[in-house]
């Protein structure tokens, strides 16, 4: 690489960083401003908005509501997605291509369309809007991500591992539980964290399928409608820190596990 192109690339890179992080930095900064009006200049600083968030039972309740949805939908997606990955990686069967295409589809359908479709379908089935409906929609949407990540890992497993387990007396189920599943662990952990974040972050499906109890993104949205307030910045910052920590932890631990194997 020539010197010029290296300089050019580093300029592009730093421009990208600024583009990505300045809005976040502004958002975080405003959460510490001692005034209801968002904007510069910041004359005095305060932690009151944060204290307010922790005292607001509405926000706390909503946080745990969102968390419960994320955990439940992730559990379903991981089981379904892993099962599909094993099915699609194993021996060939008629219609495997079709199953693969159908499996991918939920990840490709635009959120708004799938949300409306879910809403109509739920009504047809008589499913009440609320927690169950949101979990259902999130689980379906997240399955492809699990399947793709687990399939990628599964394809790197030497065929001889499962054969060695069978050879030593394990039936197919024991082989899966004691040999294949541990091998898939890093992929499953990574996929789980990704699903948790996707669900926690989702607005469209939660909005269309929710009842009176909002999820966190829906709550933030409704608070916005009654006017911008630094309290929203504080809530968003807390959510940002939590998701970033979880994401970085998952990345590091799955990389460590990959290295061990």
């Amino acid at each position: 690489m020539t010197r010029n192109s290296r300089v050019f690339l580093s300029i592009v890179f730093w421009a990208f960083v600024v583009y990505l992080f300045v809005p976040l930095a502004l958002m975080i900064l405003m959460g510490f401003k001692d005034s209801k009006f968002i904007g510069f200049p910041i004359q005095s600083w305060t932690l009151d908005w944060y204290l307010g968030v922790f005292e607001d039972t509405d926000v706390i309740g909503t946080f745990f509501y969102s968390l419960a949805i994320a955990v439940a939908s992730t559990a379903i997606s991981v089981v379904m997605g892993t099962w599909l990955a094993v099915l699609l990686t194993g021996r060939r069967f008629l219609g495997r291509g079709a199953v693969y295409a159908l499996m991918i589809l939920p990840a490709l359908v635009p959120g708004i369309i799938s949300a409306i479709a879910f809403r109509i379908y739920a009504r047809q089935l008589g499913i009440e809007p609320g927690m169950g409906a949101i979990i259902w929609a999130h689980a379906v949407h997240n399955v492809p991500f699990v399947t793709l990540v687990v399939m990628a890992r599964l394809s790197t497993q030497p065929k001889s591992y499962a054969e060695a387990a069978r050879d030593l007396g394990a039936d197919p189920l024991v082989t899966f539980v004691r040999v294949t599943l541990p091998y898939l662990k890093p992929a499953i952990i990574g996929a789980s964290v990704f699903c948790l974040l996707l669900s926690f972050d989702d607005f469209v499906r939660s909005f269309f399928l929710g009842s009176y109890q909002p999820t966190l993104p829906v709550l933030i949205f409704s608070k916005l409608r009654s006017g911008m307030s630094p309290e929203i910045n504080a809530i968003s910052t807390i959510a940002l820190v939590l998701t970033a920590v979880l994401g970085i932890w998952a990345e590091r631990s799955s990389r460590r596990m990959n290295k061990e194997n």
């Binding site: 001889s160 591992y161 054969e163 069978r166 050879d167 030593l168 040999v179 541990p182 091998y183 061990e260």
Partner: peptide
């Protein structure tokens, strides 16, 4: 009979030692 029902064991070419 499937492999798990045979009184036979194998040393695999890549050894297939379970990594975990």
């Amino acid at each position: 009979l499937p492999p798990n029902k045979r009184n036979v064991n194998m040393v695999f070419q890549d050894y297939a030692i379970f990594p975990h």
